[in-house]
Nucleic acid binder design. Structure first.
Length: 287
DNA sequence: AATTATGTTGCGGT
DNA sequence: AACCGCAACATAAT
């Protein structure tokens, strides 16, 4: 599932596709995907999206002339958005294999939004962990408050980052995956970040030196910024709003590279399990 | 053919 | 509180 760069890719593409189109009809194929909210369709009909925000991996849709109600979307492991109009299908998210012949709505379509101009937006989600749901301003504020700072933020506080690491005994990888600590990193970008920073994913967070912490902060920011410019990473399923693959896949150094030579020292990349997640690292370069 | 893996995260138990 | 393991679910790969 999409991590910050993939969610940002989806956000940027949806921004210039769905804004100000009027919602005519909403079809919910899987009630669980809208948090069992039976007011879901009713609430959105006649409305239009005015803006799309993102914090971490959470998308926040604003509605025209509506300050109290928002639409939240989380893609979790396999969620994706596809947009369809007269020029064809374009999509964004994760799950259906990119370049699949898309039938929309299809087997994994959970929610469909139909606009008055004939275009439509589909929320697809193979595994069904993701959601789109209506939330009040208060709920949105609460959700936002739960996120830690994003590594790509201009005002990222490295000192705060370093100090917090010192209080944690969990493996550094587990801490970096904690969205309440830093927002946006997921399994792929954590592995890539720790490789660049030269830190082993299993290291206890409080044993990471200040210098290494700075390297981690810098690497995560650079990696995710670069990934955004190339449309994210497609490891298995991620597809952007056009059904295209993310090009950061070509830049991956360790993720999915087990048993292949480290790009820096040629030692074979190892794959182990850390914090319950498949974890890739170079036993030589990462201390 | 059963087991294991999968870009996430929230819950329940220690 | 901090940490860990697992469950939510569908599919593909060993």
């Amino acid at each position: 599932m999409p991590e910050l760069p993939e969610v940002e890719t989806v956000r940027l593409q949806l921004l210039h596709r769905i804004l100000n189109r009027r919602i005519k009809r909403v079809e919910v194929f899987k009630p669980k995907s809208v948090a069992d909210n039976n007011q879901f369709a009713k609430t959105l009909i006649g409305k239009s999206f005015s803006h799309i925000d993102r914090i971490g991996k959470l998308l926040i849709f604003h509605l025209v002339k509506e300050k109290k109600i928002f639409l939240l979307a989380h893609l979790k492991m396999t969620g994706q958005f596809f947009f369809h109009d007269l020029t064809g299908i374009s999509g964004g998210g994760h799950t259906a294999t990119p370049n699949d012949t898309l039938k929309l709505p299809g087997k994994h379509t959970r929610v469909a939004f139909y606009f008055t101009d004939g275009s439509s937006l589909y929320f697809n989600d193979l595994r069904g962990f993701g959601y789109v749901k209506i939330a009040t301003a208060k709920e949105v504020a609460g959700a936002k408050a739960r996120f830690g700072q994003e590594p790509i933020a201009d005002d990222f506080d490295t000192e705060l980052f370093t100090l917090t690491l010192k209080r944690k005994r969990a493996p550094i990888k587990a801490v970096l995956l904690d969205q309440t600590f830093v927002a946006g990193l997921g399994n792929i970008y954590v592995d890539e970040t720790l490789f660049v920073a030269g830190v082993r994913p299993t290291r206890q967070a409080n044993k990471v030196t200040e210098k290494e912490a700075c390297a981690i902060a810098q690497a995560s920011s650079e990696i995710m910024k670069k990934a955004i410019t190339v449309g994210g990473t497609t490891f298995q399923h991620f597809a952007d709003t056009k059904g295209a693959r993310g090009n950061y896949t070509n830049y991956l150094q360790v993720f999915g590279k087990q048993n292949t030579p480290c790009p820096r020292c040629q030692t074979l990349i190892k794959k182990i399990r850390v914090a319950g997640r498949g974890t890739h690292f170079c036993p030589t370069c990462q201390k």
